[in-house]
Design a protein around this nucleic acid. Structure first.
Lengths: 200, 200, 200, 200
DNA sequence: TATGAATGAGCGTTCATTCAT
DNA sequence: TATGAATGAACGCTCATTCAT
């Protein structure tokens, strides 16, 4: 199993898998289907991947890399933490909107239970949390984030807000566009002032 | 005159299924395993359930009923909407803490993709959204919730916050207790004033 | 398993089995279905029958008895062999017409292959062949049947003619009545002069 | 470039199925048994056939094709209809004698009741009836067949005679050879002059 | 004796993986 | 390296039979 000749073919397989898994779920898709969709034979899949699980692992691996690049770029931005979040949320929704199928997989398969949860999926989520945590800590330091929250929980809030908005959006396709366009602003406002009208 | 069909046995099966599905996921569990865990034969399962899918359907059905009772009780409370939410969130986390396995299933299987998503799971989620929506509308009417958000999105916020906190909590078992105990207050605060320190 | 109290119930089961097996075949019918159709519980079936196979065995047993009575009556008739056959064929078609479901079973299940072919079915067919053989021998003795045929084959002819007419009739329900009314005469004529016009 | 899909293997499966089904009946045979008998794995069966039913369907399909070739050849013969029948009957018995197991299946499974009767079996029988009917009509036209019989019934006669002779022959294996060798002549004679001695 | 819930061997079928070509 | 036929363990489910009531 030396280095495969054709990275191109690995891409075909990855994309085919994304298309199919996003629609039918990991368990609903067979290696045969993936091979057919990829225009490749089943055997070939096993030249590029150890096994079926490895495919979804790789899908997350690729996204993980993209994420790192994004985060690196953010690291260097000289803006306040709230503004970073604002931008980040916008990016996230843009990403979901433009990569609907991928987003669907990420949101559906992330919590696939059992021992079979791939290390790579776990790493992917961990990376997000780690970066957000750093950002929140920075925010607390610069005084732009309330310091009395549990740190992990703030991360959960932010991920949760976006994550769930997306997930519910994906289940109601007719509203997708509207929600995705409006969501970032709403989410940001929510992070600023909550939902409940507070008396001053 | 024969052995009476025992609701007891249906309970055994339901509980066995909850134990196993929470750990291995619906697809990772076989009817044989459920039968063994329930101390019952495979055949017996099919005496109480149409098919494997019907079991998870039933699990949600039971939770749905509990939910309705809860919501009915809330309907009658004469407190402000924010206070209702506060109570609701507390209830929710108490529930998750005491029904960890069930919670795990609810959070994992809710977005199981493919056509096979059970009607009952869908109804369960719908019921929650519907009730929350009513509550939010009430809050807007009474002036306790900012009226400029998209209504669906506010529901998403609230569900998302709680939902994701739970889900991430479930993946980091060592923090579970702390998170669950602290979460309700944090979430409520967040709904009141957001995360970002606002200037006055 | 002493003598059962209620021969009535055994009858219910037999009739239910006839109804169902005639439509779905022996393999297509479950003991549960038979019990339900009979208005009896599965357990009760096993009070009257050793096992499922035993039911079909019994169906043929009952018909066998009716047959013996019929044959005994024929034995005593003082008419020529061709006239006996004529009458016999008429009886047979009348029987099939009035007992369609039973006839269907007899014709379908008679040649059920495998070791499982019940002794009783075999005996039933044997009895028919034996009686016909005696009749043919009598016919040869009295000079009314050509003596140069193989004896078994003549029996086959006669059974085959009737048998197959019925079987094909049963598969084309719209012609049933016509065929059954016209068949006896045609079959008799055929036994008299064949099909091919012979020169004299 | 992979192992090519071998028609050879499909043949193995077909023949294994013939062997087993002829002895135990379609319902008595499992796909596992067929696979073992064919020297192939269960999975391979499903590479060549849609499902178990499809195997028996295919068996009849193959015979159907052979039949068409035979009938085509007969169509062209310039002999009288009775002579055609004579030849046809001889062919039929030769076929049965040389393909005992196949014949057993054809005769046993043809009238398998229930909705599951394969389209292919039905077509097979229909083809035979259709061809015989044409032949009978031709015979009536040329004056070699009595015109006062019901047409369908004449077909039944001929099929029935041969069919049943074979079926009964198959149940008494020790006589098989004798019966099959003698049968064609006897059947032909019977079609010529019947069984009963007619006075002139 | 009657009931019907309980049993579990056994079925047809699928599909991740292997391997001959 | 690519192919796709071959493999067979494993699955969901059925149903004849048993047995507690």
């Amino acid at each position: 199993m030396a280095r495969p000749r054709s990275p191109e073919k690995k891409e075909w397989i990855r994309k085919a898998a994304i298309n199919l898994i996003s629609e039918e779920g990991f368990h609903g898709v067979t290696t045969d289907k993936i091979a057919r969709e990829a225009g490749v034979s089943v055997g070939t899949i096993y030249n590029y991947f150890e096994n079926k699980e490895d495919i979804i692992s790789y899908i997350f691996q690729v996204e993980h890399k993209k994420l790192n690049i994004l985060f690196d770029r953010f690291q260097k931005k000289e803006i306040s933490v709230p503004e970073k979040f604002k931008l980040l949320i916008e990016k996230y929704f843009k990403y979901v909107f433009n990569n609907e199928k991928l987003a669907r997989i990420i949101h559906n398969e992330t919590f696939r239970p059992g021992k079979k949860i791939t290390r790579e999926i776990f790493n992917y989520i961990l990376a997000i949390r780690k970066y957000l945590k750093e950002l929140v800590e920075e925010g607390i330091r610069e005084g732009s984030i309330y310091p009395d929250y549990n740190l992990d929980m703030v991360v959960n809030f932010i991920m949760g807000l976006s994550f769930t908005t997306v997930v519910f959006g994906l289940t109601e396709p007719e509203e997708v566009e509207y929600i995705y366009k409006k969501a970032p602003e709403d989410i940001y406002n929510m992070l600023v002032r909550g939902i409940f009208v507070s008396e001053r």
